[in-house]
Protein backbone atom coordinates (compact mmCIF):
# COMPACT_ATOMS: atom_id res chain seq x y z
CA UNK A 1 0.00 0.00 0.00
CA UNK A 2 3.06 2.26 0.19
CA UNK A 3 2.68 3.41 -3.37
CA UNK A 4 -0.60 5.04 -2.44
CA UNK A 5 1.22 7.99 -0.94
CA UNK A 6 2.18 8.99 -4.45
CA UNK A 7 -1.48 9.56 -5.19
CA UNK A 8 -1.51 12.81 -3.29
CA UNK A 9 0.96 14.34 -5.74
CA UNK A 10 -1.08 14.49 -8.84
CA UNK A 11 1.19 13.75 -11.75
CA UNK A 12 -0.08 16.59 -13.91
CA UNK A 13 0.35 19.36 -11.38
CA UNK A 14 3.94 19.48 -10.27
CA UNK A 15 4.88 20.99 -6.99
CA UNK A 16 6.91 24.09 -6.33
CA UNK A 17 9.22 24.19 -3.36
CA UNK A 18 9.42 27.08 -0.97
CA UNK A 19 12.96 27.88 -2.10
CA UNK A 20 11.94 28.08 -5.72
CA UNK A 21 9.05 30.29 -4.80
CA UNK A 22 11.33 32.66 -2.90
CA UNK A 23 13.67 32.78 -5.86
CA UNK A 24 10.93 33.59 -8.32
CA UNK A 25 8.94 36.01 -6.21
CA UNK A 26 9.56 39.04 -8.39
CA UNK A 27 9.33 37.11 -11.64
CA UNK A 28 6.62 38.65 -13.81
CA UNK A 29 6.01 35.44 -15.76
CA UNK A 30 4.81 33.56 -12.67
CA UNK A 31 1.27 34.25 -11.54
CA UNK A 32 0.69 33.37 -7.90
CA UNK A 33 -2.90 32.58 -6.98
CA UNK A 34 -4.35 32.49 -3.47
CA UNK A 35 -7.41 30.22 -3.46
CA UNK A 36 -8.27 30.93 0.17
CA UNK A 37 -11.38 32.91 1.11
CA UNK A 38 -11.34 36.67 0.66
CA UNK A 39 -10.91 37.57 4.33
CA UNK A 40 -7.94 35.28 4.62
CA UNK A 41 -6.39 36.97 1.58
CA UNK A 42 -6.98 40.37 3.16
CA UNK A 43 -5.36 39.22 6.40
CA UNK A 44 -2.21 38.06 4.65
CA UNK A 45 -0.96 36.50 1.46
CA UNK A 46 2.27 35.74 -0.35
CA UNK A 47 3.51 39.04 -1.85
CA UNK A 48 2.12 39.63 -5.33
CA UNK A 49 -0.48 36.87 -5.12
CA UNK A 50 -3.87 37.33 -6.74
CA UNK A 51 -7.03 36.40 -4.87
CA UNK A 52 -9.23 33.75 -6.44
CA UNK A 53 -11.28 32.02 -3.74
CA UNK A 54 -12.04 28.40 -4.56
CA UNK A 55 -15.75 29.01 -4.20
CA UNK A 56 -15.61 31.59 -7.00
CA UNK A 57 -13.17 29.70 -9.15
CA UNK A 58 -15.60 28.84 -11.89
CA UNK A 59 -17.02 32.30 -12.30
CA UNK A 60 -13.96 34.43 -11.76
CA UNK A 61 -11.10 32.38 -13.17
CA UNK A 62 -11.28 34.00 -16.62
CA UNK A 63 -11.35 37.44 -15.12
CA UNK A 64 -8.40 36.98 -12.78
CA UNK A 65 -6.40 34.68 -15.06
CA UNK A 66 -7.13 35.66 -18.64
CA UNK A 67 -4.22 33.73 -20.06
CA UNK A 68 -4.68 29.95 -19.99
CA UNK A 69 -1.04 29.35 -20.89
CA UNK A 70 0.40 31.49 -18.11
CA UNK A 71 2.55 29.79 -15.54
CA UNK A 72 0.29 29.63 -12.54
CA UNK A 73 1.12 28.71 -8.97
CA UNK A 74 -1.70 27.98 -6.57
CA UNK A 75 -1.57 27.70 -2.83
CA UNK A 76 -4.00 26.98 -0.06
CA UNK A 77 -3.88 27.21 3.74
CA UNK A 78 -1.66 24.19 4.11
CA UNK A 79 -1.33 20.75 2.62
CA UNK A 80 -3.93 20.13 -0.01
Amino acid sequence: MAELSAAANEPDSPEVSRDELIRRLGDPSLVIVDVLPRDSYAAGHIPGALSLPLAELNERAREVLPNPQAEILVYCAKFT
Binding site: G44, I46, G48, L57, I72, Y75, A77
Partner: peptide, 27 residues
Amino acid sequence: LGYTNVRHYRGGLADWKDSGNPIESAV
Protein backbone atom coordinates in the same frame (compact mmCIF):
# COMPACT_ATOMS: atom_id res chain seq x y z
CA LEU B 1 -11.05 25.13 -16.86
CA GLY B 2 -8.31 24.86 -19.47
CA TYR B 3 -5.26 26.24 -17.69
CA THR B 4 -2.30 24.26 -18.86
CA ASN B 5 0.62 25.32 -16.76
CA VAL B 6 -0.55 25.07 -13.18
CA ARG B 7 1.75 24.21 -10.33
CA HIS B 8 1.15 23.92 -6.69
CA TYR B 9 2.87 25.19 -3.55
CA ARG B 10 2.13 22.33 -1.23
CA GLY B 11 3.17 23.95 2.02
CA GLY B 12 0.65 26.70 1.49
CA LEU B 13 0.35 29.88 3.47
CA ALA B 14 1.10 28.14 6.76
CA ASP B 15 4.48 26.89 5.55
CA TRP B 16 5.27 30.29 4.05
CA LYS B 17 4.48 32.12 7.28
CA ASP B 18 6.20 29.58 9.51
CA SER B 19 9.44 29.89 7.63
CA GLY B 20 9.46 33.61 8.34
CA ASN B 21 8.83 34.90 4.85
CA PRO B 22 7.20 38.27 4.25
CA ILE B 23 3.43 38.46 4.06
CA GLU B 24 1.56 41.09 2.19
CA SER B 25 -1.59 42.12 3.96
CA ALA B 26 -4.09 44.80 4.88
CA VAL B 27 -5.18 45.12 1.30
